[in-house]
Amino acid sequence: MHSTACDDAAEAAVDENVRAPLHQSADNGLKIVIVGGFGVGKTTMVRSVSEIRPLNTEETMTQAGVGVDDPAGVEGKSTTTVAFDFGRITINERTVLYLFGAPGQERFWFLWDRLFAGTLGAVVLVDTRRLHDSWYAIDRLEAHGMPFVVAHNDFGGERHTLEQIRDALDLSPGVPLVACDARDRESSKQVLISLVRHLYALTAQDATA
């Protein structure tokens, strides 16, 4: 069999799995999704906190064409493909948390239920140079009733206060907004902690409701 860069990558993925296997007793997988526009630092954040090198894969969904002119259409079908990457954090001997980095573009939300049903919560990564990239993601998360926090990944340039960002995003007061540097492990860890604390607060609200 000839060797290609992709074969090597797959071998590396296998090695990784052998080097950092899950506990034999692992039986509960959890999900947190990091969404945001292109280049906002999703993969960087996953890498900062993951115990494995981020891996990537994709999901495809084939649909029968609905009378549209479909250039890709073999037998009138169209395929939606969404690529995402992921890393993981072992919580304890039974529980493992998977972190998914995914672009928040339209076709992604099409596959949300199929891929991310049961997700604990989401982090919306925003870049103040392209705030509008996050409007759609915030909208969709609200529509899905998915708890989330917003993390401002600071790429430098013009300074913005969190208050200004909150206004620009029209975030409801209940949604935590934090600043972060996705390249920094401690900072990325604090983002995840703010999300889990937020979930915790929501369950407490539920209990008293």
Binding site: A26, D27, N28, G29, L30, K31, I89, T90, I91, N92, T95, L97, A117, G118, L120, H144, G145, M146, P147, K189, L192, I193, V196, R197, L199, Y200, L202, T203, A204, D206
Partner: peptide
């Protein structure tokens, strides 16, 4: 071994969140 979290828009058990928080 399927995940034990609720699949619908329901919040997870506080005990589970505590475990995740501790690990983080």
């Amino acid at each position: 071994r399927h995940p034990r979290t609720p699949a619908r828009a329901e919040l997870p058990e506080p005990d589970l969140l505590k475990e995740v928080l501790d690990a983080l």
